[in-house]
């Protein structure tokens, strides 16, 4: 019996149920369903962690080689970020209406991809890889949470009738706006550290810290996009709706850098996603 796959499907099921309950709970103004959805999401982290852990032990490296491992671990980080958010501010649980469908779809999609067990090569065998990957996951997790907060902000901005009454239980729009910016700020710092650790690792492995390889370039593009977000917010006063739209449009750039670039371009960095 493959406990890894069973655990992962259990997580997918819980995330799916959580996503449905969030939508139904908010649409029909049922706070208890929203609470149940939150608990289901948090409970789903357990089988997800078990699945990742079993594979980690078996293949001998962290979840960073191949599409299945990479995408599944980012879904985990997004839900973990949601857990952190709810732990700090319980009334932000409604952000799950955006986050949980994203987590369910990404993990579900990962489950249907080949689960090839890629081996650590000489180039990948470095402590800098661990730091690079940890900060990548932290930063992308933070950006996904910022995306969800921005979506909730915009959703409430336009909501009316019964829905607006439900959403009134959320923290104020000002708080949502500031939280979104904080998550972007944290993600920006972590993404910066990811780029720096990657550069040091590249110097160790190949003798150059930067080579304008497409993945390097797109990770810098992502960083500059969020620098632009922070700059526009702090110096031009882009807050509220503008800032939220920016956070929404910035995430696809990051996701393209992570998943799209290795699929579109041939790159010496391709090993982590498609194994060459």
């Amino acid at each position: 019996m493959n406990w890894e796959i069973i655990s992962m499907w259990a997580a997918v099921t819980m995330y799916a149920a959580s996503a449905v309950l969030f939508v139904v709970g908010l649409a029909f103004s049922r706070p208890r369903l929203v609470m149940l959805a939150t608990w289901l999401a948090l409970a789903g982290l357990m089988p997800h962690a078990v699945g990742i852990g079993i594979r980690w032990v078996r293949v001998g490296h962290g979840p960073y080689l191949g599409f299945y491992e990479v995408v599944s671990s980012y879904a985990f980080m997004a839900v973990a970020g949601f857990a952190l958010l709810v732990w700090r501010r319980k009334n932000l649980a409604a952000a799950g209406v955006v986050l949980m469908p994203v987590a369910f779809i990404t993990l579900g999609a990962a489950m249907f991809t080949p689960k090839a067990e890629l081996e650590i090569t000489g180039t990948l065998a470095s402590w800098w890889l661990n730091l690079h990957v940890v900060f990548a996951k932290l930063s992308y997790g933070a950006f996904i949470v910022a995306f969800a907060l921005a979506a909730v902000y915009l959703f409430r901005d336009r909501a009316s009738g019964m829905l607006s009454e439900v959403l009134a239980k959320l923290p104020s729009q000002v708080t949502l706006d500031d939280l979104q910016s904080r998550f972007v700020g944290v993600g920006f710092v972590f993404l910066g550290i990811m780029i720096v650790t990657g550069a040091i690792w590249a110097d160790q492995a190949w003798g150059r810290y930067w080579g304008w390889d497409p993945i390097e370039t797109w990770s810098l593009v992502s960083w500059v996009v969020y620098a632009l977000y922070l700059h526009a917010r702090l110096t031009l006063g882009w807050r509220g709706r503008r800032s939220a739209w920016f956070a929404l449009f910035a995430l696809p750039v990051v996701l393209f850098a992570l998943i799209g670039v290795p699929l579109v371009y041939s790159s010496i960095h391709g090993a982590y996603l498609i194994g060459y």
Partner: peptide, 13 residues
């Protein structure tokens, strides 16, 4: 600054 960052993004892409 905002314009320069925007141009840099497009240029790198």
């Amino acid at each position: 600054a905002v314009w320069l960052l925007a141009i840099l993004i497009v240029y790198m892409a």
